[in-house]
Amino acid sequence: MALYDTANTWAMDDEFFLGFINERPASRVLGLGCGTGRSTLAVAAAGHCVVGIDPDSEALAAARGKPEAGNVDWVSGTSAQIPEGELFDVAITTSHVAQALSDDVAWARTLGDLHRTLLPGGRLVVDSRDPVARAWERWTPVNTLGTCTLLDGITLETWIECTELEDGCITMTGHRRLRRNIEETYTSVLAFRSEAQLREDIATAGVQH
């Protein structure tokens, strides 16, 4: 998880989500797929009451170990583990969470769970890449190769490669290499849904937009 945090730092999308939430001071916020807590902790620091949920136990452990982690209620699981009876002013899914729900049934179930947990007038914010841009075609080892230096001075190399699947999905394989000889890989399937499809899915779940 330290490698993840080193390679994934605060960016424009984090600024957008934080600015959106700050439009309503002291909101109750649900961060679904909160990961190691980068955005979630910033939202809590801005004065909001936050619940962060993620199915990755290692990511949650990293989040819980960060300064001010006590300002967030951390929950291990998916949308099915949203605390019963809790309602929120806003729910957010950041950093490919919506795309990582590549199974349409799981995606619909998640949207339904989020809708049920929103207060009247509550807001749902979902980010996703536009399939028209075909960004995955540029996610090649040559184009994505990058390096960064960890706190202990070791250099980390990262790159990704993709394979296009059917039904608007791609398989993305990420590579991390330390000291040019220790390599880790991870693979995920991402769904590239059009804006029209996202709007239809969200409306079907009952969320007005």
Score class of each variant (00 low, 15 high):
L41D: 08
L87H: 11
V126R: 00
A45C: 07
R129H: 11
E84F: 11
T94C: 12
G112T: 02
V189C: 07
G37R: 02
V207P: 03
G77R: 04
V90Q: 01
S39Y: 09
N22K: 12
E157F: 13
T171P: 06
S39M: 14
A26T: 08
T36Y: 00
E86F: 10
S57P: 07
A7G: 07
I92V: 15
W136H: 09
I170D: 01
L87C: 10
L101A: 03
Q99M: 15
T147V: 10
G121Y: 02
V43K: 00
T94I: 11
S102M: 00
T155Q: 13
W139L: 14
A11G: 10
S79L: 00
P25R: 10
R109Y: 09
A80M: 08
C169N: 12
E184P: 01
G37P: 00
G70W: 05
A45H: 08
R180K: 13
L156I: 08
G65M: 07
S39N: 11
L111A: 06
N181H: 15
T110A: 09
T6L: 15
A61R: 15
S27N: 03
G122P: 05
P25A: 10
L118Y: 04
R193M: 04
L145F: 15
L101G: 02
A191V: 03
L151I: 10
D152C: 07
F17L: 10
L111Y: 00
D14Y: 08
N8A: 08
C169Q: 13
P83N: 00
T110E: 00
L190T: 01
E166I: 09
G121T: 04
Q99H: 01
S79H: 06
D104H: 08
G52M: 06
R179T: 11
A11I: 06
P120M: 05
V72K: 00
I21S: 04
T185Q: 14
G35Q: 03
H48Y: 06
A42S: 12
M12Y: 12
A26G: 07
L32H: 02
E68S: 13
E23N: 13
L178C: 05
D56G: 08
P67C: 06
V50R: 05
R38N: 09
Q99R: 02
A46Q: 02
E183G: 06
R123F: 06
R129W: 14
N143P: 01
E183M: 09
N143L: 11
A91G: 04
G174A: 09
N181T: 15
R28T: 14
F192P: 04
P120V: 01
S27I: 01
G52S: 03
V97D: 05
R199G: 05
W136L: 02
A98G: 07
I53F: 04
R138M: 10
G122Y: 06
S194F: 06
V75L: 00
G153Q: 03
G31V: 12
E68Q: 14
C162L: 03
W136A: 03
L32D: 02
